[in-house]
């Protein structure tokens, strides 16, 4: 009993339900094909899921504040494009490819943060505008075509290779999750993030520099998206237009299925990891079963709603 309660401290009800759904999905899938419970398939999911998972951790940082980041699609694409572009500028560029892409993500994220924290424009609309600007910059830079630059060896190694059978992408995801968990649980900054998500006024009056915290979270989200872009480009060996488009909604869905409150103040990194994994496995199974695209989208929507109805009932509906 004590152990169960100790476990309960680390995994909340929505995450447990999500784990249950993952197991259920895999069991039902195993009737269709034994492959679904083979280690090869599961490891592959952990590898593909890393891209979504990394983005989702960034989304969590912002969602915990009660905000949302709609600039993800083109920040991801920018991360991929800038990394491959820098990687083709000689040896120095190859070495700095990943840091440069992350720096770009940091800059865009900081701009998001400034708009939300200083100008107080609702994040939904400001990040939407930033997304359009970044898209404009990338279209201008590439001329509208897929850039010809190849991903550097390090990018390909990070996204595609394995150490002792474990995909490197999964390890990156795990490290990032540990870092985010550390920040959120064990640092004052993490406390401030939850405090602002619950009641920004109170946090401000308690002496928290709310602006800095907001800017930090958006900058972190921008870096996560750029990192995912770097790894995606490494995985497909090059960057291409709109490569981040399919990740926005699944990332938000993953965070929410993992038990985070979109209005802020509640959510865990573990839940987000589990939620991203659930979405990845769900989409992958539907595509392996050759379900038509239409039915796949309907199933995707229905499952999100059903899961939310089960696990999100106690959410407050107004701030």
């Amino acid at each position: 009993m004590m152990r169960l309660r100790a476990l309960g401290r680390y995994i909340d009800r929505p995450s447990l339900i999500a784990v249950g759904v993952i197991v259920l999905l895999l069991l039902v899938g195993s009737f269709y094909s034994n492959n679904f419970i083979s280690p090869t398939y599961l490891l592959q999911q952990l590898q593909i899921g890393a891209f979504l998972g990394i983005i989702a951790i960034g989304v969590l940082m912002v969602v915990l504040l009660g905000h949302v980041d709609l600039s993800i699609p083109w920040v991801v694409t920018m991360g991929g494009m800038m990394a491959t572009a820098a990687g083709n500028l000689g040896p120095g560029g190859t070495a700095l490819a990943i840091p440069f892409a992350l720096l770009c993500g940091l800059i865009v994220g900081t701009v998001n943060g400034l708009g939300v924290a200083v100008l107080r424009i609702p994040s939904m609309i400001f990040t939407l505008g930033v997304n359009a600007v970044v898209q404009g910059l990338m279209v201008l830079y590439t001329g509208g075509y897929a850039p010809q630059d190849r991903a550097t060896g390090l990018m390909q190694w990070l996204a595609g290779e394995r150490i002792l059978g474990v995909p490197n992408a999964t390890l990156v995801w795990l490290l990032l999750a540990l870092l985010a968990g550390f920040i959120l649980r064990l640092t004052p900054l993490g406390r401030y993030i939850f405090a602002i998500g619950n009641r920004e006024r109170a946090a401000y009056l308690s002496g928290v520099d709310t602006r800095l915290v907001l800017i930090f979270s958006f900058a972190a989200a921008g870096m996560c998206s750029a990192l995912a872009g770097v790894m995606l480009a490494g995985y497909s060996r090059m960057a291409y237009q709109a490569m981040g488009d399919p990740y926005l909604l699944p990332a938000i869905a993953g965070v929410v299925i993992g038990g985070a409150n979109v209005l802020g103040g509640r959510g865990t990194v573990l839940g987000t990891v589990i939620g991203s994994l659930l979405i990845t496995i769900l989409l992958s199974m539907l595509s392996v079963m050759q379900v038509p695209d239409s039915a796949r989208q309907i199933a995707y929507g229905v499952i999100i709603i059903v899961m939310m109805l089960i696990s999100g009932r106690e959410m407050r509906t107004s701030a």
Binding site: L249, I252, V262, G301, M308
Partner: peptide, 9 residues
């Protein structure tokens, strides 16, 4: 969240 999901449907 609701409209995100129903939009997919």
């Amino acid at each position: 969240i609701v409209t995100l999901a129903t939009g997919s449907i």
